[in-house]
Amino acid sequence: MTRAKFFIKGAISTRYISGMIGKHGENSGLGAHVIFLGQVRSDKKNKKVVKEIQYSVYAPMAEKEFQKIKDEAFERYPLHCLHIVHSTGKVGTGEISLAVMASAGHRKKTFEALKFIVEQIKKRVPIWKKEVYDDGSEVWIKH
């Protein structure tokens, strides 16, 4: 198995996402693809509006944790394929910063798997974000 690649610099393009969907057509055993796309929201805070988010990651540890989550998802659910990609650096409002696509024979387990994977990513992967507002100010997000 080739080494998984989990990060993309900047926003995840619709072209990338459509490519992710398109390459599964040849596998006729698949009955369900469930996709989660995380989008940068233009939240308003104290009259300021979020313009972009800057993501920073501890790449070697994050790659390892993504791989662990992937392995756990395959152990728990009857998945055929799983793709995870997260942005690093700047992503503007309305752009996509996280894409997860789980594919399997049937929808029910695929929905469950996707929920598990996204929650685990939020909880376990060392990624941080800083909101940049329309007035140029910046704030690190604490969850």
Binding site: H86, K122, R124, I127, H143
Partner: peptide, 10 residues
């Protein structure tokens, strides 16, 4: 050694 505040991915 890495010092890491609470994560905020996604």
């Amino acid at each position: 050694v890495a010092l890491m505040p609470p994560y905020a991915g996604g």
